[in-house]
Amino acid sequence: MTSEPHYDADFAEAGAEFTYFRRHCSSLDWRLMQLVFGSLALFLTLVAVGFAIAGAWLVIPFAGVEIAGLGFAAWWTAKRSGDFERLALDGDRVIVEIREQGQSRQFEFNRCWVRLVSGNAGMFALRSHGREVAIGRFCSEESRQTLARELRNRLAGHRF
């Protein structure tokens, strides 16, 4: 389920003055995950049923809850495995492309008008004409601050 980020023509321009790209850390081999989950689920089911036949049926609910927990973790991990965030400053344009849980979104702002605003929980966002997009999903607080400083400088430099 891992997919490489989509590079559209705008982003491929060699002349982009500033680009930023972060992706969700992902090395998931979905087939391997299926193998691990499937073998564990099968094994646990056999064990739980075996003990139930011997009279110890209370192993079944615990095995079931655990299979569900592991399955949810695998599903959640796979769902986020292709997520990325990309930002480019190219002339008058600020282009942001975000992929979250398999859904890609692309935003384009005018560099002269866009503002960098602080958001919740240490996040920040680009805002212009009622549209807002959060930036810095896949980095730490300090890296996000570094990115924010860099962006502020570049946006301010372009205006004046």
Binding site: V36, F51, L58, V59, F62, A63, V65, L70
Partner: peptide, 20 residues
């Protein structure tokens, strides 16, 4: 981790049956 996931429900079942 694989071993732990495989055997922990068995222990949980055993002590729960003791409790009941």
């Amino acid at each position: 981790a694989y071993l732990l996931v495989a055997v922990m429900p068995v222990l949980a079942g055993a002590v729960t049956m003791t409790l009941t």
